[in-house]
Computed example of a mutant assay.
Amino acid sequence: MGNTVLERVRALLPAISERARTTDESGRVPEETVGELIDAGVFRMLQPRPFGGQEADPVEFYEVVRAISAACCSTGWITSVLGVHPWQLGLFPEAAQTEVWDPDPDTLVSSAYAPVGRLTPVDDGYRLTGRWSFSSGCHYARWALLGALVVGDQGRPVDFLTVLVPRSDYRIEEAWDVVGLRGTASNDILVDQAFVPRHRVIRNYDQAQLKGPGQRINPGPLYRLPFAAVFTSAVTAPVVGAVTGGYDSYVSMTKERVRLSLGGGRFAEDPYAQVAIARAACEIDATILQMDHNIREMTVRAAEGRDIPMELRLRTRRDQVRGTERAIAAIDLLFKTAGGTSLRRGSPIERAWRDAHAGSVHVANDVERTLAMYGRGALGLTVEDNLV
């Protein structure tokens, strides 16, 4: 049938590319761009059908994210992060989904998953207080998914939850002044003693066990996939997209570039440039092939009602973090061999280099820790982690 959303998005890419520098310098994706992406249906790709979504193949979603990120990584990043949240919301109780999407199925939800919030049990729910950083695209969202710990009588954490909070219950504080992904406006969220009813809470342990109350109304295979696979892939996809955009710019530039030193000549004839292109292209292709293959295998197993084994979950995380690592190796190589032109602020290669490196420091891209988990599993040791 084809990726119809991707076809609509391709028509938007020239304008997104033209706005990339302004997005980077202003620190925010233009409202016009977000509106165009909403109209294209991007944010409904992983949204449940009962609430106006498409329940699309997640591989198609990541394909769209990579295409947008190649034009502007900040735009691709908030597309991916805001676009993956409807999938997680589909695991919440029906009442929470109704509360968010009944008024408007295009409602966006941001997140900050670090468990820095404090939840105190009260009648019919909790009281939430905390401050969260790095909530990408929060200015476009009317709700937020926030990580929090339930604190017992002894003052010790007894459970780790993700809670859903409306915009009226938190304030956003401008705190985003960074080197890369500047346009994501990943600012801070502050909550002070907000009441959270029980239907707006999901246990991270249950989620890691591939369970969620929302599965009763959203029984499709999409909502039987591991959070660790779906979310972390949404973090790597923009990085790979940014590097792909940098690669395309490098190839285009190299075709026309003439050497002004070392005897002159066209860069296209330089074997070192040719080798750099080959290596970078191979890293990008290998990343996409491995990541898409793993997500497809998970989706097929979920559709057939089969278990998703730990071996596959660990392999998916292994290939996802290695995908980020490969993408960084590719853009580093291109940045180095592009010469002084890659230093110009705002050039596509320079921006791709900054944005890819910024995305690589996300907790989902902790390469060594994730590879150690894979090694533990391969050696028959127990692996306990919420991101697997």
Results as ranks from 00 to 15, higher is better:
Arg224Pro: 06
Ala228Asp: 11
Ala228Tyr: 01
Ala228Arg: 09
Ala229Glu: 06
Ala229Leu: 15
Val230Cys: 02
Thr232Glu: 02
Thr232Gly: 00
Val235Thr: 02
Val235Leu: 05
Pro238Leu: 05
Val239His: 04
Ala242Asp: 03
Ala242Ser: 15
Val243Lys: 01
Val243Ala: 06
Thr244Lys: 12
Thr244Arg: 15
Gly246Glu: 08
Tyr247Pro: 07
Ser249Met: 01
Ser249Arg: 09
Ser249Ala: 15
Tyr250His: 14
Tyr250Pro: 10
Tyr250Ala: 14
Val251Lys: 08
Lys255Ser: 12
Glu256Gln: 12
Arg257Pro: 00
Arg257Cys: 01
Arg259Ser: 14
Leu260Asp: 04
Leu262Ile: 02
Gly263Lys: 03
Gly264Ser: 02
Gly265His: 04
Gly265Thr: 03
Ala268Asp: 08
Ala273Leu: 04
Gln274Leu: 10
Gln274Glu: 12
Gln274Ser: 15
Val275Trp: 05
Val275Ser: 08
Ala278His: 10
Arg279Gly: 01
Arg279Ala: 11
Ala280Asp: 10
Ile284Tyr: 03
Asp285Met: 07
Ala286Arg: 14
Ile288Gln: 12
Leu289Asp: 15
Leu289Gln: 12
Leu289Ile: 12
Met291Glu: 13
Asp292Ile: 00
His293Asp: 14
His293Gln: 13
Asn294Val: 13
Asn294Ser: 04
Ile295Asp: 05
Arg296Asn: 13
Arg296Gly: 11
Thr299Asn: 11
Arg301Glu: 11
Ala302Ile: 13
Ala302Lys: 11
Ala303Lys: 14
Ala303Thr: 10
Gly305Gln: 11
